[in-house]
Amino acid sequence: MNLLPTLSVIVSIALPTAALAQDHRGHNEGLQITISGGIVSAPSYLGDDDYQTTVFPNISLSYGERLKASLRGIEYTAIIRDNWSAGGILAYDFGREEDPGKSDLTISGDASTDLIGLGDVDGTIEIGGFVEYGAGPIASRLELRQGVDGGHDGLHGEASVSYRGLFDVFAAPAFFSVGPKVTFADDAYNSAYFDVSETQSIASGISEYDAGGGINSYGLSASVMMPLSEHTSLVGFVDYDQLTGDVGDSSIVQERGSQDQVRTGIFINYTF
Rank of each mutant, 00 (worst) to 15 (best):
N2E: 15
T6W: 04
L7W: 10
I13M: 09
T17Q: 10
D23T: 12
R25M: 06
N28L: 11
N28G: 12
N28A: 13
E29N: 15
G30R: 03
G30Y: 04
G38V: 11
G38P: 07
I39F: 09
A42N: 08
A42M: 07
A42I: 05
A42L: 07
G47E: 04
G47L: 09
V55E: 03
S60F: 01
L61Q: 04
Y63H: 13
R66D: 15
R66C: 07
L67S: 10
L67T: 11
K68M: 13
K68C: 00
S70Q: 06
R72T: 13
R72L: 15
I74L: 15
A78Q: 07
D82P: 02
N83R: 15
W84E: 09
S85Y: 06
A86D: 12
L90C: 03
A91L: 01
Y92F: 14
D99P: 00
D99M: 04
S103Y: 04
D104W: 06
D104Q: 03
D104G: 07
S108P: 04
S108Q: 06
S112Q: 01
S112C: 05
T113F: 02
L115D: 02
L118N: 10
L118E: 10
G119R: 08
D122C: 00
I125T: 12
E126F: 05
G129H: 12
V131M: 13
A135N: 14
A139D: 11
L142S: 08
R145E: 10
R145M: 07
Q146V: 02
G147K: 02
G147A: 06
V148Q: 01
G154S: 05
G154Y: 05
L155Y: 04
L155V: 11
H156L: 01
H156A: 02
Y163I: 14
F170E: 02
A171W: 01
A171L: 03
F184N: 02
A185F: 05
D187Q: 11
N190W: 06
S191V: 00
S191H: 09
D195S: 04
E198D: 11
T199W: 08
I202C: 00
I202A: 14
G205N: 07
I206C: 08
S207E: 12
S207A: 15
S207Q: 11
G212C: 01
G213A: 07
I215H: 00
S217A: 15
Y218Q: 00
S229I: 08
S229H: 09
E230R: 11
E230D: 15
V235K: 04
V235D: 10
G236V: 14
V238H: 01
Y240E: 07
L243C: 09
S251G: 11
V253W: 03
S258E: 06
Q259N: 15
D260Q: 13
R263S: 14
T264P: 01
I268M: 14
N269D: 13
T271C: 07
